[in-house]
């Protein structure tokens, strides 16, 4: 049944996936196993995106299906599941868009990261505060518009000035590229969520 569910999720069968996951749990299925299957399916959706077989609409729907199943699965999982790492994530100052951040968040959580979402239009100081409070492995900054490029640089500078040098910094968004990474002084860049997740795994030394 779990194999079939895996395929349904990857094939974007929203209703059937959710119904099948519910039925699995109602029949005494193991929520931990269900979570793993869903995570693997999200991984495959990300791979398909990177290969050009899937597009943004599939990433959004994939995130929706995963979120729909998790709503009734996560409360059944006892104790903490082991996390790959912790990410403080926000859209930088002067940019109020959440779309890119949210797509990335769905996939990186599905991949096993814990995400502390600090919102949009986030000043550098708030990134610094969150980094101090949560001691993340990775700090993720998102921006959609070009107005976000300078705030990314300023945020990286503020983090370094505050002595936060252990966490890796990844920047993401449609207008981000290698030049912007160098300009901002970040450790990695991604212009799509799937690549972002792969790079976060690499930054943690996990196979991408």
């Amino acid at each position: 049944m779990l194999d079939e569910l895996f395929n349904k999720i990857v094939d974007m069968e929203e209703e059937e996936s959710i119904n099948m996951a519910k039925a699995y749990l109602e029949n005494g299925g193991d929520p931990q196993k269900l979570l793993e299957v869903c995570r693997n399916a999200m991984g495959v959706i990300g791979d398909k995106f990177e290969k050009g077989e899937y597009f943004l609409s599939e990433l959004i729907l994939g995130g929706e299906i995963f979120g729909g199943i998790m709503k009734f699965t996560l409360p059944l999982i006892k104790g903490d599941t082991k996390k790959l790492g912790k990410i403080v994530l926000g859209t930088v100052k002067d940019d109020i868009h959440n779309i890119g951040k949210d797509i990335f968040k769905a996939f990186v959580e599905a991949a096993g990261f814990e995400v502390v979402d600090i919102g949009v239009d986030t000043p550098a100081e708030k990134f610094v505060e969150a980094a101090k409070a949560h001691n993340p492995d990775i700090i993720g900054m998102s921006c959609l518009i070009t107005a976000g490029l300078s705030p990314m640089k300023k945020t990286v500078e503020a983090l370094k000035a505050a002595g936060i040098t252990d966490a890796k910094i990844i920047i993401g968004g449609g207008r981000v590229d290698e030049e912007v990474k160098q300009f901002a002084g970040a450790d990695a860049w991604a212009d799509d969520a799937a690549k972002g997740v792969r790079l976060c795994k690499q930054l943690m030394g996990v196979e991408g």
């Binding site: 590229d177 290698e178 300009f183 901002a184």
Partner: peptide, 9 residues
């Protein structure tokens, strides 16, 4: 012309 290059190059 990528804007990243114009901004950061």
């Amino acid at each position: 012309l990528p804007m990243g290059l114009v901004t950061g190059g």
